[in-house]
């Protein structure tokens, strides 16, 4: 049972990881404290839900649509609002994005009401059984997609021209601007990318969890926990952080009881903030 719990934890953790990865770009790299991250995950869930119910589109196919729509939404939000205050204090980042989150939540409630919506997939409650260990198929697909997204993201940030520009801005935006990088456009792109990944996370969550307007609230804090745990500015760190939180949550649920998974997550978070503020794989923070 211990091994099974670990496996369940890793499968759940992959979902957490992809929730965290989007924020890793926005907060970890671009230093935009986005308190609306969870709400963008919620938007991704509604996009997927709508495409499924209206067009019968398989949720794993609509991940692409989620990515594109959330990318555009993210860039628009950046250009219209965040851009104006991006050089101001963290406090203003937090308040502004909290306001954006409130707008998104309630817009969703105006359109979809507060009903908890789910999609019924034939495979979301079936397991592969390998050597006595059960692996849920919906989770497994999500795990694979999350890994692919993580790899693509890593490649994009490390190997492409835009990725290098993003990293340059995160280290020193004045110097980056001097060396000919278009700071505003690149930051907007990076923000859009982070939100797009949040949208994909929403898509992957829908087959296993209902969506309602307030579902995003819990994901914002969770995403920050994962980014801080993994280490600022490290996409790989967020992946590891997500997996770790997933395993901790499952072990706590199994050995102590369901409600302890939240208790332990928050305690681990506070301990990391206090004793290892640079996270597991991050650069140390000044």
């Amino acid at each position: 049972m211990f091994l099974q719990t670990i496996i369940n934890g890793l499968l759940l953790g992959a979902l957490y990881a992809i929730v965290g990865m989007g924020l890793s770009i926005v907060f970890g790299t671009m230093r935009i404290v986005n308190f609306a991250h969870g709400q963008f995950v919620m938007v991704g869930m509604y996009i997927t839900y709508t495409l499924f119910t209206v067009f019968g589109l398989d949720p794993y196919v609509s991940a692409i649509a989620s990515f594109i729509l959330c990318f555009l939404l993210g860039m628009a939000v950046y250009r219209l609002a965040i851009h104006r205050i991006v050089r101001q204090s963290d406090m203003n980042h937090i308040l502004l994005t909290a306001g954006v989150g409130l707008m998104l939540t309630n817009l969703a409630q105006m359109v979809y009401n507060t009903n908890q919506l789910t999609i019924n997939l034939s495979y979301s409650h079936h397991d592969l059984v390998i050597g006595g260990l059960r692996i849920n198929i919906a989770y497994l697909i999500s795990f694979v997609i999350a890994s692919v997204v993580a790899a693509l993201l890593f490649w994009f940030i490390m190997k492409t021209e835009t990725g290098r520009a993003i990293r340059a801005i995160s280290q020193n935006d004045a110097a980056a601007a001097l060396s000919g990088i278009h700071v505003t456009r690149t930051t907007m792109l990076a923000f859009g990318l982070g939100i797009a990944v949040a949208g994909v996370a929403g898509t992957l969550l829908l087959p296993i969890h209902y969506v309602d307007p307030s579902v995003g609230d819990a994901f914002s804090l969770l995403a920050f926990i994962i980014v801080v745990l993994g280490g600022m500015g490290s996409i790989l760190g967020s992946a590891v952080g997500g997996l770790l939180i997933g395993v901790i949550a499952q072990l706590a649920s199994y050995y102590l009881g369901q409600s302890y998974s939240d208790v332990l997550t928050y305690i681990v978070f506070l301990l990391v903030l206090l004793f290892k503020p640079s996270g597991l794989l991050g650069r140390s923070r000044v």
Partner: peptide, 16 residues
Amino acid sequence: ESYSTKDLDYKAMLQR
């Protein structure tokens, strides 16, 4: 056992 409707997964609890 108590759970929150916001929880993603109930399998660990049901295993208990």
